[in-house]
Design a protein around this nucleic acid. Sequence first.
DNA 1: TAGAATATATTGTCTATACATATTCCAAGT
DNA 2: ACTTGGAATATGTATAGACAATATATTCTA
Lengths: 229, 229
Amino acid sequence: MSQTWLGIREEVHRRLRDGEWKPGDLIPSEAALSDEFNCARATVNRALQSLAEQGLLERKRKAGTRVAATPVPKAMFQIPLLRAEVEARGSTYRYLLLKKSRRKAPRNISARMKLESAANLLHIKALHFSGDTPYCLEDRWINPDVVDGLSDVDFSQTSANEFLLRNIPYTQGELSLGAREANAEHAELLDIPETSALFEMNRSTWLDGLPVTTVTLLFPPGYTLSTTL
Amino acid sequence: MSQTWLGIREEVHRRLRDGEWKPGDLIPSEAALSDEFNCARATVNRALQSLAEQGLLERKRKAGTRVAATPVPKAMFQIPLLRAEVEARGSTYRYLLLKKSRRKAPRNISARMKLESAANLLHIKALHFSGDTPYCLEDRWINPDVVDGLSDVDFSQTSANEFLLRNIPYTQGELSLGAREANAEHAELLDIPETSALFEMNRSTWLDGLPVTTVTLLFPPGYTLSTTL
DNA sequence: TAGAATATATTGTCTATACATATTCCAAGT
DNA sequence: ACTTGGAATATGTATAGACAATATATTCTA
């Protein structure tokens, strides 16, 4: 009776669900399981690695595989590419550059980018539309020392969001989500009442330790980020 | 020159970053790459699968591997287990049951749970504290037909969040994040001004097609969900 | 020419084996 | 007791070979 790695993952998953193996327990070794399921060890390995990636198991060489003490569920989200997201909903995407200037980064920005010296950065503000309604307000800082060909790009047509996601690589990044009350400027630009609750997404990226860009995206009420578990 | 799958992933990743292979392009077959890197095909396979999981590549049998047209980054988030999250920050966790009743599910709830008939559900409201400050407001509906031993649990001590995450399995789930303006009730319970922007997390789960539970967690301003890319 | 059958290329997965690497455990020596 | 060193063990990964599954491309047939 030969098994597929998906089948084995499913069976192990069931044992975890049913409490046959409880949090903190050491489960049988790959060798033992490959014997039980009558398959190669590599197949068991594939299944267990998959469950470990999801955070249900913790594996250590020699120490064996144990059920995660606090099985923290993990969820994958797709980071929106604004144009694609709008067009996927059948609306026409439009983009408006509000501001583009070169200036010293304020404190909070250089902190977010982990900049030592207050470098001269490119600051961009832009609005993204879905049809005629504002979809997202973008506030971005770019490090011109790291981004090649930046001066060639006139951000009145291509959005910085798109340009950077498509062309500029990064090796590390941080992403955080939260909520923020709209201020007067937000309210006017996004065409919503003041005090509305905005969905906020912050992303910063680095290339080999050098800060590339940091951006805040603000979405008007009603926007949701969804995924399946 | 034998290679590791991580090394190959890194090299392929570099070629994507540097634009040697552009979005939409077909990249060489596993056989060709394993030849170039002088390693087994399985090793290349491991590397490419890893990149495909991250959304950078799209693979199809016979059709080959191509660079994702719109490389949508994906990010993994850890779903908070409230107690663990609070304690990890060094605060003491406290929990207060506000309401527990059995009633017919209102429209929006049965829609969210994809319930056909308006079943009799258990409705729970609770507050989670970090030290003395409210940390999260929980509003949950539970399907007693699916959750075993529900009547044995007195939710005044154990939070429903904890009980369900630890004991009740599910096979499918949905998760969505958003922002919402606080109303009078939220403001009072969370001890914040009205009109504050709350971070909202909705989770619903099913077990083999049967609805298990749906919950809304509301977090006061300042709460963020973070991850690294 | 259009549609159906067939060939073919590419990824998906399994097997068996081997060695690498990290970690635990125990025994020996101080 | 304490350290040190090695043996044992579980996972991590690489290899070669095989077959399966699935698109695509080609050829055949009506």
